[in-house]
Amino acid sequence: MTKRAKRRLRAIGRYTALGVWAVVVAFPLFWSVMTSFKPPYEWFTWPPTWIPNPFTLNNYRVVWFGELLDTQYVQSASIQTPFFALVNSIAIAGTSTSLSVVLGLLLAYGVSRYGILSEATLFRLLILRMVPPIVVAVPVVIYYATLGLSDTYVGLITVYVVSTLPYAVWMTKSFIDEVPVEIEQSAQLLGASRLRTIWEVVFPLVRSGVVATFMFILILTWSEYLMALFLSATNISTLPVQLNKYEGSTEGRLYGWQQALSLGVTLPLIVIGYAIHKHLVRGFSFGMLKR
């Protein structure tokens, strides 16, 4: 076999493997989208229909606008429009992610430049994060009940900030470590104050990394289910919690409705991800690309 043929064969193999993997990853998304446009009798039909027939927007009208309830096959589910949960999700995930990244960045700067925490300590904190959330969920519920933090924004945001902070510190630290300290020192020698140096020199150089960290943590908090379920009641509710509510007393799980909502949960992340994709490519490569 010639060298060229060999290389070609390798390329074919590589793309086949990647293609198969792409299908595996994308299939649930495809199924979710298709189900959201199916009429109720197609949700469970066997053999399954791949493409909705007839194609309907009814699931969306029911879930998002509370219309058509009486004309639908399903009648007994309790329905509440998810806009309330959407606003909650945006407020809670947005605030906790921003706080986590800002605090993480400042902490990471201290760790990277002043060694305020050793790498070992930092790693231990990260390992703590490996504890399954369910282990701490019950104690937190009890604490929160006592402190009156249950079912409040402050309560849920605090849990999210605390639980994502180790990630934020680790990720941003790796980006700060990459900025040669001499760059900061030359700014100082040229008369820049410490804060000015961070703002004008360090921050612009780690911006991509910060954006990538933000996206990573946003995905965590946006899709968090367990704590949101345990720590919310009537005042606050997030989209993942709502997602689990589409169950009729006689019909079982209402897949079409659930998927109509799940698209609303997924879409914002996709839009944000697309808007910042330039930063993500640089940020997620963890500095393997040369600046």
């Binding site: 040669p180 001499e182 760059i183 020192q185 030359s186 020698l189 040229l190 150089l205 600046r291």
Partner: peptide, 11 residues
């Protein structure tokens, strides 16, 4: 004024 080994220009 100082010039560093790696120059430390602001990239």
């Amino acid at each position: 004024g100082m010039v560093f080994q790696n120059l430390a220009l602001f990239p």
